[in-house]
């Protein structure tokens, strides 16, 4: 693994990927963005990512299926669920199926950065969450 954290971001809302890709790049993530769950699954079959961020409610394939696929294929990978349909039952289901974290939409870029930093820490690869903070402070 090159020093960068490998992140796959899956959300059928294109804007999410467009905004989060640069946001995560700032803290040293290499982000691959997908809007189509099928293509994401194909890619996930090929490559082991450090972190997978996925929406839950999508048309053809459910985020939960992506979660299960990743947990089976790459047990080391941390999966972060993001959803606009957050409910206690859904949150518990996601956790039960092995999600690393569960974030309700709408969230701020920092919210996700913080969670990704935590995920990286859990993987043993400390990432510089403050990179963005420093940049912000400077800018």
């Amino acid at each position: 693994m090159s020093g960068n954290l490998q992140v796959l971001l899956l959300d059928d809302e294109p804007i999410v990927g467009r905004r989060l890709k640069p946001a995560l790049a700032k803290i040293g993530c290499e982000v691959e963005v997908f809007e189509n769950p099928e293509q994401a699954l194909i890619r996930l079959g090929q490559k082991e990512f450090d972190v997978v961020v996925t929406d839950i409610r999508m048309d053809e394939i459910d985020g939960m299926q992506v979660l299960q696929f990743v947990r089976e294929r790459w047990p080391r990978t941390n999966v972060i669920m993001i959803t606009g349909y957050a409910m206690m039952s859904l949150a518990r289901e996601a956790m039960e199926k092995g999600a690393f974290d569960f974030i309700a939409k709408p969230f701020k870029p920092d919210d996700l950065r913080r969670v990704i930093a935590k995920a990286a820490r859990a993987l043993g690869s400390e990432i510089d969450f403050d990179a963005a903070e420093v940049e912000k402070a400077n800018g």
Binding site: E13, I15, V16, R19, L20, P22, A23, T83, G84, Y85, A86, A104, K105, P106, F107, K108, P109, D110, A132, E135, K136, G139
Partner: peptide, 23 residues
């Protein structure tokens, strides 16, 4: 719930705009 999607898009975009405005 459905509203959360556009809200999220707005939140993310606004935050990133604020953050990276100068660049």
């Amino acid at each position: 719930h459905e509203l959360n999607n556009p809200m999220n898009n707005i939140t993310l975009t606004a935050h990133m705009l604020q953050e990276d405005y100068d660049e």
